[in-house]
Amino acid sequence: MRTSRLAVLVLGTMTLAGAASIDRASADPYDYPWCAQGPSLGYPGECAYQTYDQCLASVSGRFLACGENPRVLFREQLEPEQPRPHRHRHRHHRQ
């Protein structure tokens, strides 16, 4: 009995350690423009579709719909603006 408790404890610890090491980038390797959306998927949904037709084929027969990925739509607004490099304009004089 004690051995089985120890095994469950070790297995649980390993599972938690593995889950904690997953970052957002590796959990969501794709960020395509179309998402399958529904109550079971959360927001913004499963964003793994390059085209609307691909998304429609995937959600067919499921209690899901297709919507645009807000991370793709608003990517430019979410990314911090990079300072533009300063350029010197040189005037060339004819001699």
Rank of each mutant, 00 (worst) to 15 (best):
Q82V: 09
Q37F: 01
C55R: 14
L6Q: 14
P80F: 00
W34S: 00
S21A: 08
R87G: 01
P85I: 13
E68I: 05
A25F: 04
H92L: 13
A19E: 08
R87C: 08
R24P: 01
S60E: 12
R24Y: 09
A65C: 01
A65P: 00
R71P: 05
Y49H: 15
C35W: 01
N69K: 02
R87F: 05
Y52N: 12
G38K: 08
A36S: 10
R24M: 07
H93M: 04
L6E: 14
P85Y: 12
R24G: 03
S60I: 00
S4D: 10
S60M: 03
M1S: 11
I22A: 14
D28G: 01
A25M: 07
G18E: 04
L64M: 12
A19M: 09
R89L: 09
D31T: 08
G45R: 00
E81L: 14
G61H: 07
S26E: 15
R71M: 15
I22M: 08
R2W: 09
V72E: 02
L64C: 05
R84I: 10
H86R: 13
P39W: 09
P83N: 07
A65D: 03
N69V: 05
E79I: 09
A48G: 05
H92Q: 13
G67W: 06
S60T: 10
A7K: 07
Q37H: 12
D28I: 05
V59Q: 06
A20N: 11
H90Q: 07
A25E: 11
Q95I: 13
Q50H: 10
A19F: 07
Q54G: 12
R5G: 13
S21P: 00
